[in-house]
Design a protein around this nucleic acid. Structure first.
Lengths: 218, 218
DNA sequence: ACCTGAACACCGTTCAAGT
DNA sequence: ACCTGAACACCGTTCAAGT
């Protein structure tokens, strides 16, 4: 698509650099960080583990990223940037539901991402871009600015919290839940349903729709 | 209330022990951990920092708690246990709103708590007790078990996510937001409102009521 | 039983060199 | 400009002693 001999040369050069010799760039660092976090968990993502992933010295990445904090912010913002923006001309409810569903799917695919978002500012350029797009969407539905923002903030909080809750109970836990049923009497069905939240995103979608509809029906 | 000379003696002895000489107990350890996390942030809560807070050796706490993971679980469960249970005879909507409001208030008072809950199981005895009480509350409102649980899970996720979002933007950030307004053009009002979420819990309460009502109006 | 002391295998990051 | 190497001040936790 970029085409031409130069394009090919650049690609080869880039791949070569990313795989073996130094030649680090932020994109490669961020990608490697997310890969490690996905495979081994957020707590295992350390600057030193990142350096072994990139096959460089522990300090190499610091030349492209100020430190671990900035790295995490970049991983988050880059991920948010991969969600397609809401279409301002589409049906508001459909567009909003689709965006937050996509975000939720992403958090389910990358549990470390949800965890990283907790306690972080989420004000990178991609996040701001996305926020603007979905807020505009809510406004075209007839909502005043303040209410549109309230909807966005609340829907985001709901999506993040649901993602965290769901990803904190993985397969191992669901298994263990079955064993606990006998000992917990009346709580059995409850815990079983709680545990099933991991694999059943319909609870989230249901709640999201309820929340969005209550704002858009005004 | 426990009364008698023995009660007094125990109290004196306990205070003496907690303050100076070893004599650690889980309650004291958990309290100290929350105190450190509140004052210095969750990332500053280390087993070693905890030990200096308790004025003991780094390894002393390990005799009462298996490690850092269990410590965090205990801090969370103990905190949840301090919320008053929902009254099964009260108005369901009122009771549910009150419980999640109280949880939200707690997360706002203890930002480290919200952060600690992200990526943790929340299945301690106090959490289960609370979940049972609010689920029962939703059931007396006429909801089937599955839907009652869906409501509880979704309301919890919303509360946690909102708490995380709100506490991640503290006073410092709100200040910085004002400076950014000029450079961001049309985003100005939006970011200002986003930043105000920290001190304005009405957005959360509004969203919570909408979510709860959509389930209870069935 | 409960706490200490020393040790191990890690962290994030600074700083001075190398090329 | 970009990377390395050595070092510093931390971590969580094990393990062998002390009382």
């Amino acid at each position: 698509m970029v085409g031409g001999p130069q394009g090919v040369e650049q690609t080869i050069c880039k791949e070569f650099r990313m795989a073996r010799v130094a030649g680090l760039d932020v994109a490669g660092i961020v990608a490697a960080a997310l890969a490690v976090a996905d495979r081994e968990g957020l707590d295992k993502l350390t600057m030193r583990r990142l350096s072994t992933e990139l096959e460089v010295t522990p300090m190499a990445a610091y030349h492209h990223v100020s430190g671990k904090e900035e790295l995490l912010d970049l991983v988050i913002d880059e991920s948010i940037g991969q969600l397609s923006l809401a279409d301002p001309d589409g049906d508001p409810l459909t567009e909003l539901a689709a965006w937050f569903d996509a975000l939720h799917d992403m958090l389910m695919d990358h549990p470390a991402l949800a965890q990283a978002m907790a306690g972080r500012r989420l004000e990178g350029p991609q996040a701001v871009r996305a926020a603007r797009s979905i807020t505009a969407c809510a406004q075209t539905a007839g909502l005043e600015v303040d209410l549109a923002i309230e909807l966005v903030v609340n829907a985001f909080g709901f999506t993040l919290g649901s993602g965290l809750y769901a990803t904190s109970r993985d397969a191992v836990q669901a298994q263990k839940g079955d064993r606990d049923l006998a000992g917990l009497g009346a709580d059995g069905p409850m815990l079983a349903t709680l545990a099933s939240a991991r694999t059943d995103p319909s609870q989230f979608r249901n709640g999201l729709k309820r929340l969005l509809q209550s704002y858009l029906k005004e």
